[in-house]
Write a protein that binds this DNA or RNA. Structure first.
Lengths: 118, 118
DNA sequence: CTTTCATATGAATAGTTGTTCATATGATTA
DNA sequence: TAATCATATGAACAACTATTCATATGAAAG
């Protein structure tokens, strides 16, 4: 027995507050989506990719060169960024150019940088 | 051979741009710190904890009750949030109250919510 | 001092994730 | 059509992580 319920709650006085909060909590799916979004930013390779795309579009091999990583590793990460719609692609012959999907991504990165530099 | 260098780069025309970007990229440690920060937000349990603390301080067992999880699981996650200075603690007898460390945390969560609702 | 309560933590485990290697796809050029 | 180039992807593996269970700590009450 270690999972508390609203019935056997040990801090009796908090019961009302707890019940209220349980009501205001967004649904599981939404909270899952939010954490999934942040999970994308929680990898230094992906942060680096997003950072270099900050300036403008780049092709896959250019990103690999700048970050000194293999084309495969970069491509795998770009797939994740593409699936979560954080980056956009543009094809030009054999080359595929990647760029940030919108300014939202920029803002989130800036937010992280700001928090770190304190 | 799959790791590109500035020397054997296949997209000759991009060489200059690539070299420039390599220079503007923040140092490894900073980028690691930023991704580490986002990694904290990349777990739904921690997001939920931060969300319920949004309203005000709560003790460990109250958080466990609201989130319908074990005290142990919550305590482990609170340790991570404490170590990364995203939450603060205040002791009152046997009870330990947790609250958000600063408004920065609030802003980041709002950011995530905003991005999701599109 | 013993018991009880709230919280913290170590060890174990199951699930997840990032990179590598090999190979496939899809577009250009010879 | 064959060869080459840029990119994508599947499988495998190593590293990491969140939860559970058992137990420890530390404070209050009896």
């Amino acid at each position: 027995m270690s999972e508390y319920t609203l019935e056997n709650h040990p801090c009796e006085e908090h019961a009302k507050l707890v019940e209220e909060l349980a009501g205001t909590l967004p649904d599981e799916e939404t909270l899952e989506d939010i954490s999934e979004l942040f999970k994308i930013f929680g990898d230094s390779t992906r942060i680096k990719i997003l950072y270099v795309l900050h300036e403008g579009e780049l092709c896959v091999c250019d990103i690999a060169t700048v970050l000194q990583m293999t084309q495969s590793a970069i491509s795998h990460q770009l797939r994740i960024l593409r699936q979560t719609r954080l980056v956009r692609t543009r094809r030009e012959g054999k080359t595929v150019y990647y760029s940030l999907a919108d300014d939202h991504v920029r803002t989130i990165i800036s937010m992280g940088i700001e928090h770190i530099s304190e």
